[in-house]
Amino acid sequence: TLFEALYDYEARTEDDLSFHKGEKFQILNSSEGDWWEVRSLTTGETGYIPSPYLAPV
């Protein structure tokens, strides 16, 4: 399942991933609570992002 960003987000740590509203992601790991490890389909980068900022496509 692909997810889309509902809002912009600016990374706060080196493990976070900055992204823009509308960017699409592949979920790599969603078992860590509200922070999911994802791969951006736009940039190819991986990192953690807050799951409340995402919605299924």
Rank of each mutant, 00 (worst) to 15 (best):
F25C: 02
L41K: 03
Y48V: 09
L28S: 01
I49H: 00
F3D: 00
G33Y: 09
G47V: 03
G22E: 01
E32L: 14
E32F: 12
F25M: 03
L2F: 11
E37K: 09
T46W: 08
T46I: 14
H20N: 10
E23M: 06
A55Q: 12
E37G: 03
E37S: 07
G44M: 07
L6S: 03
T13L: 11
G33K: 12
P50I: 05
F3K: 00
E23K: 00
R39M: 14
L17W: 07
D15E: 12
P50L: 13
G44I: 01
Y7T: 09
L54W: 04
W36A: 01
Y48T: 08
F19C: 09
Q26L: 14
R12D: 09
Y7I: 11
D8W: 04
P56T: 06
E32M: 15
D15T: 14
S51I: 07
I49C: 05
E14T: 10
G47P: 00
T46Q: 10
V57M: 09
F19V: 08
A5N: 01
L2M: 09
P52W: 15
S31Y: 09
F25T: 00
E45V: 10
L28C: 04
Y9A: 02
A5M: 03
Y9M: 04
S31G: 11
S31R: 08
S31T: 13
G22K: 02
Q26A: 10
S51T: 07
G33A: 14
S51Q: 08
W36L: 06
L41Q: 08
I27V: 14
Y53N: 05
P56V: 09
Y9V: 05
N29A: 08
P56K: 05
L28I: 12
I49D: 00
S51V: 11
H20Q: 13
I27H: 03
P50Y: 15
E14H: 12
N29L: 05
R12T: 13
E37R: 08
A5Q: 01
K24R: 14
E23Q: 07
Q26S: 08
S51D: 02
T46K: 09
T13S: 13
E37A: 07
R12W: 08
R12S: 13
A11W: 03
F25E: 00
R39Q: 12
L2D: 05
P56I: 09
W36S: 02
T1E: 13
P56W: 06
D15K: 15
A5G: 02
L54G: 03
K24N: 05
Y7S: 09
E37T: 06
E4Q: 09
L54Y: 03
R39G: 02
E32C: 10
G22I: 00
L41Y: 06
E23W: 07
S18A: 07
Y53V: 06
L41T: 08
D16Q: 15
S31A: 13
S30D: 14
S51M: 09
A55M: 11
W35C: 08
K21V: 09
E23T: 06
S30K: 13
I49L: 06
E23D: 15
K24T: 09
N29Y: 06
